[in-house]
Structure formats: structure tokens, C-alpha cells
Design a protein around this nucleic acid. Sequence first.
DNA 1: CCTTGACCTTCCAGTAACTGGAAACACTAG
DNA 2: CTAGTGTTTCCAGTTACTGGAAGGTCAAGG
Lengths: 135, 135
Amino acid sequence: MNISAVAGAAGLPVKTVRYYSDIGLVPAPARSAAGYRSYDDAAVRKLVFVRRAREFGFSVEECRELLDLYEDRHRSSADVKRIAARRLDEIAEKQRELQSLHDELAHLVEACRGDHRPDCPIIDGLEAKRAGEQR
Amino acid sequence: MNISAVAGAAGLPVKTVRYYSDIGLVPAPARSAAGYRSYDDAAVRKLVFVRRAREFGFSVEECRELLDLYEDRHRSSADVKRIAARRLDEIAEKQRELQSLHDELAHLVEACRGDHRPDCPIIDGLEAKRAGEQR
DNA sequence: CCTTGACCTTCCAGTAACTGGAAACACTAG
DNA sequence: CTAGTGTTTCCAGTTACTGGAAGGTCAAGG
């Protein structure tokens, strides 16, 4: 399989597959006489695996860890669980931040009449928030 | 005020204040004889404004827009509202994504016994998900 | 056999928003 | 006067790609 076929199968851009190959995350198992990367089904599975893991927010380095685990079935699933649980905490934290962000901004937007008067609660809200100061 | 004083007052790292100065987002209003950046209270207010806006997820370029609006009180608040509302949509979208991510990963983590057996539902869950395939 | 167009290669540069570090100059306390 | 801290500029690195240029390869059509 050439790079565009494998990229299509894995749901990744060609550039990204090449990049993963360059950084040694998912190298091409072989090269054609002309130097074309040639991939097999195992590589496709790995690329899908990486794509999914990236969608879950795992960094490329974490993907590398995960991929090592994935490659070596003798490793315990506790390692994987540890990594995943850490990610889960981070996601939950991010969600909380995003929620308060959303609430605050929504409040500001609602307070804003959006007309052509020059004073704007959004601007004011962004500016204040240090003490209880109100300009 | 020297850069570290203003950075402290604005709640930003010195490096970041210098960076904002370099890119012209919040330039230092003056320089000392020795070339030290010297800031005034207005600059501190702008830096706080930017920090807050950044915390809200506005990009630096959006901060620049917002800052222009903030500087020029003659602009309508509708402009600000438009920018903020767009951001709000993006935040909501990101929240939805994060939620499904969280749910999926949590499900995987829960299914994983975390013991030393080599098969791991997290790995399996990351790997599959294309068709209804189950290895 | 030749050309055309799609596909492949490598390498270089750029993105966002900083962060870290080096070399050198400035300021302050003792 | 000296030590220590603060400041300057500039350069490089970070993350995970993405875009583009210059050039080699392959399959089909005429």
C-alpha cells in the first residue's frame, strides 16, 4: 500500500502519515525500489490506533507509550489504565474550566445589548474582575 | 514601573509581557535612558485585560481586535458582542467534544480491571471503533 | 515512444504563543 | 567597589503538524 491508500484507510492526511513516519511513531515497514513508503495492514491498524488516541487528547509521546504497550502484549493493562486515568483527570479539569469560562462569557454576552451605544458590559467585564471595581 | 513590577501587577510572567511588547500588542509606553521598558497604569490595565481575554480563550489576534475596541470607545458594542458570541459557540462546541471524549474514555477505564492480565479494554477500545469489529 | 497528470520523495519554512537560555549592560545594597 | 539581581536583545526550541517548492516515478492514452 502506498502512502495515500494507507492515509485514506486510516483517516489521516498524507502529510500526517509521513510525519509519523519521520518521527518514528509509525514507520513504513518497507520502501519500494523507487523509495516509496509501503505499508501493510498492521501499519494501518497502528495508524488508526494513533488517530483515535490523538482524538482522545493523548499527546504524540503518550501515543508512543501506548503503542509500545499495544505492541508488547506482555505488559500489564495497569500501565495503560494509569495513563488513561491521568488523561481522564485532565479532561475533567479542562471541562470545569471551560464551564466557568462559558458561564462567565455567556453572562457577559447576555448583559450586552449589542446596540450602538459605546459602553459594553463585555469589555467592562473583561477589564474588571480584579477587585469588585466597577469603572 | 519596570517590567517585573508591571508583570506582577498584571499577573503575567515577565517573558510574556516582553513578548506582548515585541509583537506590539501592549507596547511599553516609554523607555528609560538605559533602555528599560517603563510602563504606566494604563498599560497595566491593558495587560490585565489581555490576560483575562486570553483566559477566556480569545486568541492574541482577537485580543488585538478587542483591545482596539477597548481603546476606541466610539465603536459599537455590537462588534464586541459579535466576537464574544462567536467564541461562546466555539466553547460550547469544545465542551460537547470534551464530554463525549470523557464519557468514552471513562467507560474504557471502568471496563479495565487494571490487573496484570495482558488484555486491556482500553487498548482494545482505542484500536477498534471503526466497524463493529471486536478483536 | 512520448507526454500528461497524478503520486511520490526530501527539504525548508511557517504556524501559535510563548519559554528557556546566553551574553552583555544597568542598578542597588552593603 | 563588588556582588547580586534586573534588564536588554537575540536565538533556539516547543507541539503537531501544514504548505509549498523542486524533482523523481508510474500508469494511461495517443
